[in-house]
Amino acid sequence: MSATLRHVGWVLRTNPVTMIAGLGALSLILLAILGPSLVPYDPVASNVPMALQPPSRQHWFGTDQLGRDVFSRVVVATRLDLAIAASAVTLSFLIGAVIGSFCGYTGGKLDLWVGRFVDVLMAFPLFVLAMALVAALGNRVENIIYATAIINLPFYIRFARAEVNVRRNLGWVEAARCAGNSHAGVVLRFLLPNVLPAMAVQISLNLGWAILNAAGLSFLGLGVRAPTPEWGIMVAEGARFITTGRWWLVVCPGAALMFAVLCFNLLGDGLRDILDPRMRT
């Protein structure tokens, strides 16, 4: 195991960005947990006389059209945004990895039908699909999660399928059969653990994408509704004021969004380096 640790150490040393991204992601998670008890103002309390103030010492990120403190809103929104993305990714990962692995291993009819299903899913522009799903299921937060999970699903299925497929004829898989493992045992005990590291990369990259998707949906007015603090909806509300120069209403939540996505993406790239230095691109 020490060799693995050495390798991780080497990657972090030569690629400090990964470390910074890891710290960033960690601090985001802490903010999501502790945020509401840290912020200086109530994120939903309006204070009309103080409306549309530029950033100042009292209001670090300025105030919005109702005089609410943008900083408090941005911080408090972390929890909702991360929670949506994390639950969506978890859902699609769990379902996609298992289905994809079995498809990749057995091939045949199951593979064919799942492949068809994935094709149908992929025949939509995925963001449009998510919109339609939220519209169909109802304009609620949990439906944003389901919609995001469903549009992520094809990627996990395909990814797990491809990763398992290249391994299914390797010696150690056949050896596992000789050692008395059933097909299901081979998939669950041998193939899945081998595919998981590569999927960890996918999960991290996917988290960023899921955050973007969820924020995009609420930017359009789907899912989360005002006055709930959420980055996408805050940008949407601020959009009205951009042509009159109130940049902070867009820039602050937008920057928070970008920071979160950036952290998870960089973390994903770093994980990829840790797992396989040759895949470094």
Binding site: G208, L212, A215, G216, F219, G232, V235, A236, G238, A239, I242, T243, G245, W247, V250, V251, G254, L257, M258, V261, L262, N265, L266, D269
Partner: peptide
Amino acid sequence: CTLGVCVPTFVSGLLFIY
């Protein structure tokens, strides 16, 4: 590339307008 994928279109569009 790293930054490009992190910027949501609705934010970059608004920043362009600004």
